[in-house]
């Protein structure tokens, strides 16, 4: 076995994959959040952002494909880990309890992962695989004016927040980045990134619910 396959087949190798793909997905989320915050500045700003993005042409498609690949690797590896971990404890405890290590985020990682997956499918059907004869601003305004979608989006985004709340710190830990000197900075960053992404997206959703005119 080559060193590479040996590494990625090992339990730690899979964690590195989760961390690195997680890092990239997190980076995407930041960019995505930054881009989408153009919504706060009204229709023109948002359309200009979208226009610039589409102006990238081939590059955008390549980036989309790359993102898809990263995403699939993250899900696949996550699923392998999840199933492996289920198998590592053949008989269950009659009484479950936590000694205080787990957080909500860590305890729900696979489940929030699934929520996010479903959410992304919906999100893509809403905005990507849809009739693009109208402007993206109109599509967004229409979808997110509906309380049903507000609800779906808030659930999905909360799942995302919870996922990232553990994922961000966990990524550093898995890559071996831990030291008393900068532990607190990492923790702070973790909360900041997680809070920022979730807050921006949720604010957009709420804004469009109460005032979809902003995009008109």
């Amino acid at each position: 076995m080559s060193w590479f396959t040996q590494t990625i087949k090992s339990s730690l190798g899979k964690k590195y994959i989760m961390s690195l793909t997680g890092l990239m997905l997190g980076g995407f989320l930041l960019v995505h959040a930054a881009g989408n915050s153009s919504i706060f500045f009204g229709r023109a700003a948002f359309l200009s952002y979208a226009g610039h993005l589409h102006g990238l042409g081939f590059l955008l498609h390549a980036a989309e494909l790359l993102l898809l690949a990263i995403f699939l690797v993250h899900i696949l590896t996550g699923t392998i880990l999840f199933l492996g971990n289920l198998g590592a404890r053949s008989s269950r405890y009659a009484v479950h309890n936590s000694a205080g290590g787990r957080s909500w985020g860590s305890a729900t990682m696979p489940y929030t992962g699934m929520v996010i997956f479903c959410f992304i499918l919906i999100h893509l059907f809403n905005f990507h695989f849809t009739d693009h004869s109208r402007t993206i601003a109109d599509i967004v305004a229409e979808v997110l004016a509906r309380p049903f979608y507000t609800f779906i989006y808030i659930v999905g985004l909360s799942g995302l927040g919870l996922h990232v709340s553990h994922g961000f710190w966990s990524m550093f830990q898995s890559l071996g980045i831990s030291h008393p000197k900068y532990d607190r900075v990492i923790r702070a960053c973790a909360w900041l990134v997680c809070g920022l992404i979730t807050a921006v997206f949720i604010l957009i959703v709420l804004l469009l619910l109460v005032n979809s005119n902003i995009l008109v």
């Binding site: 590592a88 936590s98 966990s170």
Partner: peptide, 8 residues
Amino acid sequence: GNCTNERE
């Protein structure tokens, strides 16, 4: 199993 940094 695989560590998922649960800290338990």
